[in-house]
Design a protein around this nucleic acid. Structure first.
Lengths: 293, 293
DNA sequence: ACCATGAATACCTTTTCTGCATCAATCGAT
DNA sequence: ATCGATTGATGCAGAAAAGGTATTCATGGT
């Protein structure tokens, strides 16, 4: 059976056209070299090197085979190097899930740094509903994810990376827009636009706790999944909303923000399976601290 | 050192994720298989298969390496097959030179058939001056060539493939145009357009012999290398010419042809080095007979 | 806790590879 | 034309590697 040693031997002989010199280069003696090339030719059933006891030169088959053999050897070396790079976490792919609330806050600095440090790792970002994210991590569809902080889950590592307060988002012609700490009573009568409970339970819990602390009951006017849609509806004057502080950075026209009195906080956390053996994963999770920036 | 056997073993184990079954498929017993995979991992310094005594599954490096190892094995198999195809003359390249006079006569049928029979051979056609063609064959720049027939040359095989008479080419308003056998005396006073002697000695020799047989002396008005140019100049009424019969097939406007009395003939021949070992060459030279068509 | 399964290890046999010595063929010089 | 130098091939013995059988070790399910 043709093997790599035979290819390496043949390539060297083909390059020097001299069995003795090739043997020196390969650090073997000449007889085994001759025999290996013979064995290769016998296996192929093809004469690759035409040789009399004085000269050696390639046949047409030999020229062709030299070319392709070089490719095979190079591909093998590359494969070995790549396997090592993958094991070192410098090459490969990493599937990261994130809830939309992380897109403007904790996610970007982590992703940016990771891509700088591990440019050869194919980072696959998948925006997912918070309610589905844990399942996907547990199933192994995601290597890691950024979602809301929560209690321990068996088999998962959960590392908090960001706490941010909720703030009030109101149309810019609204009397409370831009004003100081807002108490629950001040907005209890307003129509509220919120994310459905099923989509982001911790966010709804934070909103509920805020109103509960002021003995108020929020009036939900509309539910919609995407944060951007909520902001957009606020800008249209359809209602007000309580949103994570990072939404204020977007500078959407027609919306102004105001801090809340005793503002509830939501927590972002990095989550991954403790038995996930993707070598690139530790280099991602160790960046969790950047989420605070 | 990593070798092909290790790759094949690893691939089979990776595909079955079961050392025992893989060993059956490979027709070896399980212990050597385990040892080869271990050796591979030791050489790479990387764990490819995570295994306890119950289950086996690939690591990230293993997945990657499986992919690339398959490529390496496939490339090797392909290289072996191609070497055999080249040796059989079914793959490779063949450099064929030809004089322009062959382009409309002996060359096309040979080339057409060869391309049908050996579609994977890269046929490189190089139009060359007859005066240079033998040197290129002797130097090895060409595997074979079609040129004028001539005496034996040491180291070359020369096989005649076509004899064709010269004919008169004249402007279509010329009194001799289209007429019967032309004797030398009938055109001795006309201005003649010819190829330079150095470019195609046998052609000039044929023309000379024609006039010499009639005790006439041609009046050369113009010399130019390419046959097409000669025909074109004739069409313009600049002169007449004696050209190979195959030129009549072109049907150039403004030119008519007439046969010559005791017409001299020129011979086309296939030429190649007898020591040329290009396996595709015999399949080309054996088609020489088609040149007569 | 025990049993069945599957991979690793121990040990021996067989095969293959290497190196040394030598042979054979070719080319150049005399 | 002959001889010597060069270079690839061959014969043989020792070394290394691969394979096979028997057995052990670890794990997951009952």
């Amino acid at each position: 059976m043709v093997d790599i040693r035979q290819l390496r031997y043949f390539i060297t002989v083909a390059e020097t056209l001299h069995f003795g010199r090739a043997a020196q280069i390969l650090h073997v003696s000449q007889p085994p070299l001759s025999r290996q090339v013979q064995a290769l030719e016998r296996d192929l059933g093809v004469t690759l090197i035409e040789r009399n006891s004085r000269h050696a030169r390639l046949t047409a088959s030999g020229e062709r085979f030299l070319d392709e053999a070089r490719g095979v050897v190079a591909a093998l070396d590359q494969a070995c190097r790549n396997a090592q790079l993958v094991a070192a976490g410098s090459l490969g792919e990493l599937r990261i899930g994130f809830m939309m609330h992380a897109a403007h806050s904790s996610l970007p600095p982590i992703v940016k740094r990771f891509m700088e440090e591990r440019p050869e790792v194919d980072l696959q970002l998948k925006e997912t509903l918070p309610s589905e994210i844990l399942d996907q991590v547990l199933r192994g569809d995601l290597d890691a994810a950024i979602t809301f902080g929560q209690g321990a889950v068996k088999g998962l590592a959960i590392e908090p990376i960001l706490r941010e307060p909720l703030i009030l988002a109101a149309p810019d012609d609204h009397p409370l827009a831009g004003r100081g700490p807002i108490t629950p009573a001040m907005i209890a009568e307003e129509g509220l636009i919120v994310t459905p409970r099923i989509v982001a339970p911790p966010l709804r819990a934070a909103i509920d706790s805020y109103f509960a602390a002021g003995q108020a009951v929020p009036r939900v006017r509309l539910e919609t999944q995407l944060q951007h849609t909520i902001i957009s509806l606020v800008a249209q004057g359809i209602g007000i909303a309580l949103v994570p502080h990072s939404m204020a950075r977007l500078g959407t026209r027609g919306v102004r923000f105001a801090s809340l009195d005793e503002a509830p906080e939501i927590e972002h956390a990095l989550v991954w399976r403790t038995d996930n053996r993707n070598p690139a994963l530790p280099f991602f999770t160790r960046l969790g601290g950047l989420g605070r920036a």
